[in-house]
Design a protein around this nucleic acid. Structure first.
Lengths: 365, 365
DNA sequence: CGACTTTAGCAACGCTGTTGCGTTAATACC
DNA sequence: GGTATTAACGCAACAGCGTTGCTAAAGTCG
């Protein structure tokens, strides 16, 4: 680990702050980060130099010299995100602030092959780059949120459920060659929770994005980072058993949350089942935020949200201090694609990982 | 964050390595950590200076200058750990290598008060210090593993289950005043999983210690650190529902894993229920290691281990690559107390937390 | 207009790991 | 036995990060 880690870490702190507050000042940043004002000056100067921040006038205190005010330049960096489901490909363009600037969905052929996906992806990405006139230093890369199981560390799909042509496909590598851009691949729900985290800032430290979309999954954000697990296969929350003698699930077990949820007679019952599963998650992991999403949940969004809020109130002990924020995703059906894009930004402008050095700072002179 | 973070981080890497391998050399450390050999020389010199490492002869390569060999001095730092249950107080002494040097258990009065616990704790700690002639720089502090719920960040017990006199007790603060030593407090199972992690080294990155002892809990070690959650109340795994219409649990819900497990007609059925719960955990979190422990599990240890191994084999898809290491804790009934002690060592000699600076290096000249 | 307050920034510094290069201690070769 | 080779060690100068000390700037207040 070089000294560069410190620099990147502090720059990432400031960027994260800039994402969640309208304006920045030297003094307030120093307070939040614990750095000295002098050090903050240097960090701010570097970020202005890189184009990520810009001056935004001054604040005049009741007495004394006016303070220089800065703000994020959201458009200075962008990334493209893709959400691959069994039926369609959704592409979004997001900026540094986590705003979705464009979103298009195109159908995919039934049981599509890797080549068919790559064709569709390349065509969509090329169009988007042309339409928006995106240049290389500005466009950070492409993220792909995909149904699992897959190996996130290498970007290889191990064998997507119900897609025959996807056994051990090195998707990240293939897409990089095809697009000529950096590509990261991750499970759909893990990408999705990254979107929520990127937009909400650092109070969002322990959370889950619970998604119902054909199956049930939960992307996990634990201790301020995505949790992927030992084989990057975490989030198969839908295959946790909630009814030992319940109906047979596609995975072979009995009474998986997903199977019980699916067979519920009406949406209200289904929501109650899911809510119980969410409380299980809270008991085990003690999350501060539950975000709900997915194409099969959002049509009954308020119903689900109320069911979960109700379960949190009635099924979880320690009411006074065990506060859980329950909400629907503000990104709707874009959440996975947007999260995949933000993973690209997060890799470069999020908190660095001490175990791996970061690539040599793309556009820094 | 100061430059001191880098220093502490690299020292912690070397100490962690020294714990898990018999001997160290400059070259191998450089390879593992990614530092230059020159930097490793400086780190090793500092650690020898502090007494944590010592020279251990030389290795003579086929040709060339012999390499200096170092090894950990396990006895150079020790910590005392306490495990508080409803019936007894267990005290252990551990060293830097994670070896348990002494273990004593004393009964606690029924429904004991904070004062009664502190009396017993002070008496036991004083005895242990006297018997082993522990000096201040050598003894790093005292850790307490306690039944929850509690606030780990402040060391306050919020209101331990079935203990009437434990509403909002600032246990860490009280114990520090009483003992004159640094004290950390944590949930029993979280302390326990720290013991396993400290002894197993950095291949142990995503794991759970599943404990059956009156209740059922799971201490979580995720991404190389203890997972405590938004209100430091994670690990209440026993209160995850596995049978929606199951028996009423003490917590008010129906069909909690703990309740279903408790009412199983025989140990084999109980083990199968727990095993299903463990697979739920694996589906959600994708853990690489499951460690089993607890006073009510260990008497049937092999039965439980085989049940879990069997469930992992038969209930978890993706057999080829989803490898899970299942084992019984090697520390037996000492695991929680030992883990509490290792949390003290971990706070000082484990990987530092970027968000909080470390206290000013106790005994560094 | 001078005193005071608040913020900004230059310059020197301390500490980290890095780089360059010479030194040391062993074996292999002639 | 001397010389070359090898592998590891370590001094010294260096680069880059945040910190410290101090001065300057830009306002308000009396």
């Amino acid at each position: 680990m070089h000294l560069a880690f410190l620099r990147d870490y502090h720059e990432a702190l400031v960027i994260a702050l800039a994402r969640t507050v309208p304006t920045l000042e030297r003094g307030t940043v120093a307070e939040v980060t614990g750095l000295t004002p002098q050090a903050v000056s240097k960090v701010l100067a570097r970020l202005v130099e890189e184009g990520l921040l810009e001056p935004a006038g001054v604040r005049r205190p009741p007495r004394g010299k006016p303070a220089a005010v800065y703000r994020l330049v959201p458009g200075s960096r962008r990334a493209i995100g893709a959400h691959v489901t069994r039926r369609e490909l959704r592409l979004v363009l997001v900026d540094l602030a986590g705003t979705v600037l464009a979103s298009i969905a195109t159908p995919l052929p039934a049981d599509f092959t890797p080549d068919e996906l790559l064709d569709e992806l390349a065509s969509g990405v090329t169009t988007m780059i042309a339409e928006r006139q995106l240049a290389t230093p500005e466009l950070a890369g492409v993220g792909i949120g995909m149904i699992g199981p897959l190996d996130q560390s290498t970007g290889t799909v191990r064998g997507a459920h119900r897609l025959r042509h996807w056994q051990d496909v090195p998707l990240a590598e293939l897409a990089e060659q095809r697009l000529g851009l950096p590509v990261v691949v991750d499970k759909d729900v893990t990408a999705g929770v990254t979107a929520e985290a990127w937009r909400r800032g650092n109070t969002f430290r322990d959370a889950a994005l619970v998604v119902v979309d054909a199956g049930v999954g939960a992307g996990l954000w634990l201790g301020g980072a995505a949790h992927r697990g030992a084989h990057t296969n975490a989030s198969e929350f839908g295959h946790a058993v909630v009814q030992l003698d319940g109906p047979r699930c596609a995975c072979g077990r009995r009474g998986c949350l997903e199977a019980v949820h699916e067979q519920a007679p009406d949406p209200a019952t289904a929501a109650a089942v899911l809510a119980t599963g969410v409380v299980n998650l809270l008991q085990t992991l003690d999350l501060g935020h539950i975000v709900l999403g997915g194409a099969d949940l959002l049509p009954h969004g308020d119903l689900y949200r109320e069911a979960v809020e109700d379960a949190v109130r009635t099924q979880l002990p320690g009411a006074g201090w065990l506060t859980v924020n329950v909400s629907l995703t503000s990104l709707g059906t874009d959440v996975v694609a947007a999260g995949a894009a933000m993973q690209v930004l997060n890799a470069r402008y999020g908190l660095p990982d001490p175990t791996r050095p970061r690539e040599p700072a793309a556009a820094s002179r």
